[in-house]
């Protein structure tokens, strides 16, 4: 039953305050500059049936030191273009590859070990039609695409309570709920132990299967969330050289604690990198029609002073 492992796209969720702040930055600070604006988004473990946890972007996203407990940080950048035309010609491939290069650099320098959130970045390209209060945007969370697909060798819905509790304890007390993934050791009688991915980083030299826990934003059974892709790339690519990994995909119950029944085990096999070292990046978000294309947000009703005045009557 080996088949390519499928990942669920991380939906983007910029809210009104994000657009309002972006419009303000455009008018007062960036003006015609198309330089990337650094930004930070957050996601959390999936907590609802039938609804994935999105990458949340708010006005606080422009304050780079924004952190929340129980939310995983993802750095990225906003590219604010001046015309819709330039959005059409925007080098999306290049932008995605650029982000992957930064991820790669963090892998090579080892900074991703002390801060695994560096393994995922996003790019939001946007044209802001400020006369119409409409924002055309397209978000990419680039993932490295290997020549051969990552394979799923087994999937078990539901995990044992002890593993869940060990992860819960570690996640909240050690990382304030901000670590996207970590190593899980032990099991069965001995109980589980969690540790960050960095200490003893060469992990699994004699075990042929390493076990990691992953905070999973996906709601779909059998499809882990998108950020796992780059984690697997780290574990199995250059750095750790693992070939097979057991991943505990942790999802929340509604109260915000890991749920044993909603979480799942995935056995994953990664094909050897081979001689072809060129990295491809994938991850531009599909729009609401299911096609690859930008989305739009029309905020005239909330941002346009005229419409606000008339609706306040």
């Amino acid at each position: 039953m080996t088949e390519p492992l499928r990942f669920l796209e991380l939906p983007s969720a910029p809210d009104v305050s994000f657009w309002a702040r972006l419009a303000e930055l455009k008018l007062n600070e960036y003006k015609l500059s198309e330089d990337p604006i650094p930004c930070v988004g957050h996601y959390r473990a999936c907590a609802h049936e039938g609804l994935a946890s999105p990458l949340t972007l708010t006005s606080a996203s422009f304050d780079l030191d924004t952190t929340y407990e129980s939310q995983i940080r993802m750095e990225g950048e906003v590219v604010l273009l001046n015309t819709l035309e330039s959005m059409k010609t925007f080098d999306r491939k290049g932008a995605a590859l650029g982000a992957i290069r930064k991820v790669e650099a963090s892998v090579q320098s080892g900074t991703c070990l002390s801060d695994p959130t560096a393994l995922n970045r996003f790019v939001l390209v946007c044209f802001a039609d400020l006369k119409q209060y409409t924002f055309y945007y397209w978000v990419c969370v680039p993932a490295a695409k290997t020549a051969d697909p990552i394979l799923s060798e087994g999937f078990t819905q539901g995990v044992d309570q002890a593993a869940c509790e060990a992860c819960q304890e570690y996640y909240h007390s050690e990382t304030k709920g901000r670590a996207p993934f970590w190593v899980l050791e032990g099991g069965e009688e001995g109980g589980y132990r969690c540790r960050p991915i960095d200490n003893g980083g060469e992990g699994g030299e004699d075990d042929e299967i390493a076990t990691v826990a992953f905070v999973d934003p996906s709601h779909v059974a059998g499809s882990p969330g998108w950020p796992l892709r780059n984690f697997l790339w780290l574990l199995c690519g250059g750095l750790c050289g693992l070939r097979r990994v057991r991943v505990l995909c942790l999802r929340h119950e509604k109260l915000g604690r890991f749920s044993a029944s909603r979480s799942a085990w995935h056995e994953v096999a990664i094909p050897p990198a081979g001689s072809d070292t060129t990295v491809n990046a994938v991850g531009w978000e599909h729009n609401s029609k299911g096609g690859l294309g930008p989305r739009s947000a029309n905020l005239a009703s909330t941002l346009d002073p005229k419409q606000r005045a008339s609706s306040a009557m």
Partner: peptide, 28 residues
């Protein structure tokens, strides 16, 4: 999502390992 001239955006090749969460499409 009617971005003007959306057809002008070149559609890249689909990545077969993406599960799309699209409301009206089949959900995995």
């Amino acid at each position: 999502d009617d971005v003007p001239d959306m057809e002008d955006f070149v559609v890249e090749e689909e990545d077969d390992t993406v599960t799309i969460h699209h409301p009206s499409s089949n959900r995995e």
